[in-house]
Design a protein around this nucleic acid. Structure first.
Length: 268
DNA sequence: GTCCATGTTCTTTA
DNA sequence: CTAAAGAACATGGA
């Protein structure tokens, strides 16, 4: 559920509710969602002030008043919400922070997400590629030239470019008119310029529509996104291409379902 | 029962 | 040695 636009929307809705506020209690229901394992999250978080909440790739980064940092990754099914104490607790709620009159709750049925302590020294940038909203075409070109993998797989690699996932890679490739199986190092500079632009436009539109809700995603206020209604290819196999009317195809690339228009995204 | 899922990391293969 | 491909993780919905 959570790629860059969804994570950005969570941060945008959570930040005003917690920034500058003190964590007055910490309840950790499952210790195995914390990294490094065995770390005493409760002791380290309790009574700290949340100075800021920001996004890096798909990470939700918290900075505390003692200048320590940690991040929450939502994995596939994670939700991070700020709710009143009386709101019903979702199943699989692993962490609850009391912040002012609200509870910040992290729930995640599949537990692919988690809480990652960075402390003073570790950085949220570790093994992360550039932010796609500010990546320049030449920068993307240089990175793509280093791999023979299909462009679909390359764009999913967070160390190549950070924040894209299965939905927005498919949507961006459609907008750029590039077939998902083209080897990354064979894209022309023209195609890369188009791709770079398509990624930015797609992500900005998705953020404007508060992300895509397919099943689990909601922002910190519990609201679903609306961008799924505007998807051109993702989860639209067999339906008509919005541009040319051809049926959208679904193939499997690197174990992930991949959607594209065989007419608008020709393989060379 | 089967297959599939918005993600990442570890292991195996080439 | 390195890059790429595959398996694994855990749960729930169709």
């Amino acid at each position: 559920m959570p790629e860059l636009p969804e994570v950005q929307t969570v941060v945008d809705t959570l930040r005003p509710k917690v920034r500058g506020k003190r964590v007055t209690s910490v309840r950790l229901n499952r210790t195995d969602i914390v990294q490094p394992s065995g770390f005493d999250l409760v002791a380290q978080l309790n009574d700290k002030i949340i100075e800021d909440v920001t996004r890096r790739g798909k990470k939700i980064v918290f900075r505390l008043n003692d200048d320590q940092q940690f991040y929450i990754h939502l994995g596939m099914t994670g939700r991070l919400t700020a709710e009143t104490t009386s709101a019903a607790l979702r199943p699989h709620t692993h962490l609850v922070l009391k912040v002012a009159d609200l509870e910040v709750r992290f729930s995640d049925p599949r537990r692919f997400g988690g809480v990652f302590w960075l402390g003073h020294n570790a950085s949220a940038d570790d093994r992360m590629g550039p932010e796609p909203l500010t990546t320049r075409p030449q920068q993307l070109a240089k990175r793509l030239a280093k791999t023979t993998r299909a462009i679909k797989n390359a764009l999913l690699d967070q160390s190549l470019i950070a924040g894209l996932g299965n939905i927005y890679v498919d949507e961006s490739l459609f907008r750029a008119g590039i077939h998902p199986l083209v080897p990354a190092d064979q894209l022309t500079s023209d195609e890369i310029a188009r791709l770079n632009r398509a990624i930015k436009t797609t992500l900005r539109r998705a953020i404007r529509h508060r992300g895509s809700t397919l099943r689990d995603y909601m922002d910190a206020n519990g609201n679903a996104g609306a961008f799924q209604k505007l998807h051109a290819v993702y989860d639209r196999a067999g339906r008509k291409c919005r541009r040319c009317g051809s049926p959208i195809e679904r193939i499997v690339v690197g174990g992930r379902s991949t959607h594209f228009c065989p007419h608008c995204q020709r393989k060379r």
